[in-house]
Nucleic acid binder design. Structure first.
Lengths: 218, 218
DNA sequence: TAACACAACTCCGCAGACAAGTAGAGAAGA
DNA sequence: TCTTCTCTACTTGTCTGCGGAGTTGTGTTA
């Protein structure tokens, strides 16, 4: 019921019933309006205050601090098309591959080669293979030494993982020798500091991934 | 005091006192521990529940739903280096430019050309120029018809805006005729459905932007 | 006109009571 | 001995009343 009251309140805020910074009716007034007691109203207000929508000042009242909840990044991804997510991944990873070729340290290179070897071993169980593949790609992105690109990559992978598992079950296209060699080429391009080559290798692989997910996509 | 209790509780969760999914002590037990009454504990729990850290089930208890608050995307960008943000923008926009060249509709093209003309007009006041420039770039990204790329772009721009304004004050490199012509080339590449050309034009311009911000960066 | 006192209102926190729900202990039966 | 059922103790959910602390607007006074 407190959750319900909070939702109701948020809807009224979203509808523009109160302007930004405006004062809401008092707890005692709001209670009967929402059909709940005072403590329930207080809990609802606390909840919205935690989300930054409301701010209460003792003695003064409750004020609108934001007109809506800052949308959660995970929520955006969850309700997005997987193909769109993969396209964003293409953007991130091709750029990251190029930067990685330029900035990789010997330690990065060791990590990349270790992840590549790991990926070659784990090719039986779908879950393990997908995770090993993700770990390899992550080692490339990490070598770009750009925390934002890394964060973005980490945000994308959970959403893509499920789709990759399903794809792997339907068609065995990935996980074959050709696929592994494509990854090896990417690793070698990074090792050779070949920016264009790394970007191209990354892009080619991910485009294939996108096609596998939505063959009809233009 | 409720906020204080919530912070205290969050700290204890962060410290690993309770595992993920574990049940917390009851409200009546937690109250004396935190030095507050039951209703105050309830409000603190509500607050954390709104953030997704706790989840309470009537009759069963309160359970840990997440070990920490989901980090806000804005906060990540705020504490990041601008150069890193620009690099992420390069990744997003070059990919978006290529996609835009493929998927643009006549309406997209009209919007792009309108934004380009607007950009050509507003070249006196720094704020107006930066905003017009951003609007033009956004019209390109929007033409890619990928909501994730658009959201990412919208997330980046506020962070970059400030830095661009400062840069514009120091050096007048941007806003000149050459700069405007570079943008026109990008628009025309999208119009001509030249994917590689659009991507390259976008990349070249943004690389120059990055150099302007951090001349020493490799 | 300006400074002050005050009263009404607000949120804050506490305590107690009851309702609604859960989960485990214990009894009953097979 | 195992299974099933019932019941009790405990938990959260909600309401109400109370006093404390803070703010704000009004009226008074110098």
């Amino acid at each position: 019921m407190a959750d319900q009251a909070a939702t109701l309140l948020l809807d009224r805020i979203r509808s523009g019933e109160w302007a930004l910074g405006e004062r809401l009716p008092g707890e005692t007034t709001l209670g009967p309006q929402l059909g709940v007691g005072r403590s329930t109203v207080r809990e609802a207000i606390r909840q919205l205050a935690g989300l930054g929508v409301l701010a209460s000042r003792q003695g003064a009242g409750v004020f609108v601090a934001a007109l809506d909840v800052r949308e959660d990044w995970d929520a955006v991804l969850r309700r997005s098309d997987v193909v769109d997510v993969v396209e964003a991944r293409i953007a991130i990873e091709t750029e990251a591959a190029g930067l990685a070729a330029r900035r990789r340290t010997p330690a990065d290179l060791r990590a990349i080669r270790r992840a590549l070897a790991e990926r070659a071993e784990r090719r039986t169980a779908p879950e393990e293979h997908v995770d090993a593949d993700t770990a390899f790609h992550r080692s490339i992105v990490a070598a770009a030494h750009n925390p934002i690109l890394t964060d973005l990559f980490d945000g994308f992978t959970p959403r893509v993982r499920q789709a990759m598992l399903e794809m792997l079950r339907i068609r065995r296209a990935f996980g074959g020798d050709a696929d592994q060699q494509a990854h090896a080429r990417l690793a070698e391009a990074v090792a050779a500091r070949d920016e264009a080559g790394a970007a191209e290798a990354s892009r080619a692989h991910l485009l294939a991934l996108r096609e596998g997910m939505a063959p009809s996509s233009p």
